[in-house]
Design a protein around this nucleic acid. Sequence first.
RNA 1: GGCUGGAUGGCAGAGUGGCCAUGCUGCGGACUGCAACUCCGUCUACGCCGGUUCGAUUCCGACUCCAGCCUCCA
Length: 488
Amino acid sequence: MLKIHNTLTQSKQEFVPIEPGKIRMYVCGITIYDYCHIGHARTFVSFDIITRYLRYSGYDLTYVRNITDIDDKIIARASKNGENFKQLTKRYTQIMHEDFAALGMAAPDIEPKATDSIAEIIETIQSLIDKGFAYQGTSGDVYYNVPKFEDYGKLSKQNLEALQAGERVDVATDKQNSMDFVLWKMAKPGEPEWDSPWGGGRPGWHIECSAMSKKCIGEHFDIHGGGSDLQFPHHENEIAQSEAANGCVFANTWIHTGMVQVDKLKMSKSLDNFFTIREVLKKYRAETIRYFMLSSHYRSQLSYGEDNLDAANAALERLYLSLRDIDLKGMDLKGMDLKGMDLKGMDLAGMDLADLPKVDDSNQYVAKFKQAMDDDFNTPEAVAVLFEIAKAINRSKNNDLENARYLAVILIELGSVLGIVQQSPNDFLTASAGDELANIELIERLIVERKQAREDKNWARADEIRDQFNQMGIVLEDKDGKTNWRSC
RNA sequence: GGCUGGAUGGCAGAGUGGCCAUGCUGCGGACUGCAACUCCGUCUACGCCGGUUCGAUUCCGACUCCAGCCUCCA
């Protein structure tokens, strides 16, 4: 039974989809005008894992993640660069897609853009005006009348009086209430604009998501997600807009991810303490970054630091090390009790996941894994199960190879739900984080030479060669007369 | 100031009313020519003060500290 922590109720609840077997999920994507950083990665890796697990659990999921491609910051950056805002957003969207793919994220089913949804946005605003929830100010800007929506604050547990009391001094505006927010903003000369019943302008940020979610998955859907910093005001405003315009409940379950911190402070553009995905990828493998993210729960804050990335890398290596030397290719697996699975001829290393038979939960590890993930996507506990399997594989390697192979299949299959341990162990272990290609020929020649030295009991020469390897950033592992190597 | 969440062993990080998290690191042992890998063992962990209980890190209350939101923000 899947339980999900719902921000609306501040508790873990049994998840019941609106339509049996189907889930519609909308996640707020990013405002695109720059490189994505590790904070963004954390949120979207979290939802990638949620997506994988929901599908693994048998749900037919529609995953929508939008792109905000019109916004004050975009206009400002484009103007600073002296380029059209569309060139800017197109360029960085491309980069975002590359970075996200590098981190092993599957693309969302639908990726709507605000600028492709202007008609729906205008329609939603008009509906709010018609129902008395919105008005046009003297400046021409259209605002949402916040006090008009009785449930305002139900997501973020705020109340209007307290919000207004704690408010910073605002510049004079034509808003009727200080909490009112803009739905349609009139264009200044030279700014991009779209025609509307209220004049040429652009949509406000919050209304975009209300319009795009409705356009893609309807007025009432199962899950709405995003970073916890969007809880207020963005998601609160979305609820106010959508529920007022549509007259029905908006999203049943709200999922919010914890922020990434740097030296105890939130990683963000404004604090200028961010690390882009690109720069971190220069030093760490993508899978290491991904592992680092799922080593803590998605709702907790995650402390970014090289020590933690190094530990994540060592942990991931341990997982791959357990799989090394286990090759199902060409092995006779007839005698294996694989619960009806036919693994003959399958190459564990880099096999196509679609071909991987499903392991059922009669296996204790699978059952444990699902139990962890069913409990609000508890990835740290799920990862712990992976390590239990790795240990069992290592124990079985020497005396029960068939069991080791069986466990390896389970490890890889469960790893696929988290998006880790999907490479050939050898590829992973011998790849260096940077892009310097190891000189395979030299390595192999030296290994042969060292082997001879060891046979001649020329320990001095053998150790000399090993030291040479260490200087190249390579560790040697002698096993049953064979020598493996890996990067470190 | 208001709202929300958190405080676990050297570090990271789950969890539970009484018993094992897990990973990294350290230490001892096995394996090894020596290492590495691996295995076995191991390091007085639950912010502070009260309360409930046969028993609390886990439940309740107070306190201290930290973070997030209240301004664009994943």
